[in-house]
Amino acid sequence: MNRPLVCVGALVWGPENRVLLVRTTKWRGLWGVPGGKVEWGETLEAAVRRELAEEVGLHLKNVRYAQTQEAVLSEEFHKPAHMLLVDFFAATDDTAITPNEEIAEWAWVPLAQAPSYPLNTVTRTLVALAAQAARA
């Protein structure tokens, strides 16, 4: 029996108050945030720290929960999947990216410019939440 995959991702602010966006091989050319699957026995925060280190070489600080979303058979994803996506906000002191094989392109952008990128739907929601929090 197939079950939903639990995944984590983070919208990360760098030292110049820009956020990291990445284009991955898994979202059909759309941009998003780094992340991936939670491993057995791993906390959500440990998973997001590990995934960001593996995918882009960043060490996170100020990791905080942002929201939970679902992606059920999203046509934007490269294969049929049911994912429970736990999103975080975080910061880093680094801007140098060490991409793994999943990262095709990346950019550090002001949060206000992020919606101008062709974002996947779940990242668009996360960026909107961050913008709303910034205005509050």
Rank of each mutant, 00 (worst) to 15 (best):
R3C: 02
V6E: 11
C7W: 01
V8C: 06
V8T: 07
G9C: 07
G9W: 02
A10D: 07
L11Y: 03
W13L: 11
G14E: 05
G14D: 07
E16S: 12
N17W: 05
N17Y: 07
N17H: 08
N17E: 10
N17I: 02
V19E: 02
L20K: 04
T24S: 09
T25V: 09
R28A: 10
R28P: 02
R28Q: 12
R28W: 06
G29I: 03
V33H: 03
V33M: 08
P34G: 14
P34M: 13
P34Y: 09
G35E: 01
G35P: 01
G35D: 04
G35V: 04
G36T: 08
K37I: 04
E39P: 09
G41F: 08
G41K: 03
T43H: 00
T43D: 03
E45H: 07
A46Q: 12
A47R: 01
V48R: 03
R49D: 04
R49G: 02
R50N: 04
R50Q: 01
V56C: 03
G57L: 04
L58K: 04
N62A: 13
N62S: 14
R64A: 12
Q67S: 15
Q67V: 06
Q69T: 13
Q69L: 14
E70K: 07
E70P: 03
A71L: 04
A71G: 05
V72G: 01
V72Q: 01
V72T: 05
L73A: 11
S74A: 14
S74Q: 06
S74W: 00
E75D: 12
E76S: 12
E76K: 09
P80V: 01
M83H: 01
M83Y: 00
L84G: 07
L85K: 06
L85F: 04
L85C: 11
D87L: 15
F88S: 02
A90Y: 00
A91T: 09
D93K: 13
D93H: 12
D93R: 12
D94P: 05
D94A: 14
T95F: 09
A96Y: 07
A96R: 10
I97V: 15
T98Q: 14
N100R: 03
N100L: 00
E101H: 10
A104C: 12
E105G: 08
E105A: 12
W106E: 08
W106F: 15
V109G: 02
P110A: 06
L111F: 12
A114G: 15
A114K: 06
P115I: 10
S116M: 13
S116A: 14
S116Y: 11
P118L: 10
L119Q: 07
L119G: 06
N120A: 06
T121Q: 06
T121C: 00
V122S: 00
T123Q: 05
T123C: 11
R124T: 05
T125Y: 15
V127N: 09
A128L: 15
L129E: 12
A130W: 08
A131Q: 15
A131H: 11
A131I: 14
A134P: 08
R135E: 15
R135A: 15
R135S: 14
A136P: 02
A136I: 12
A136R: 14
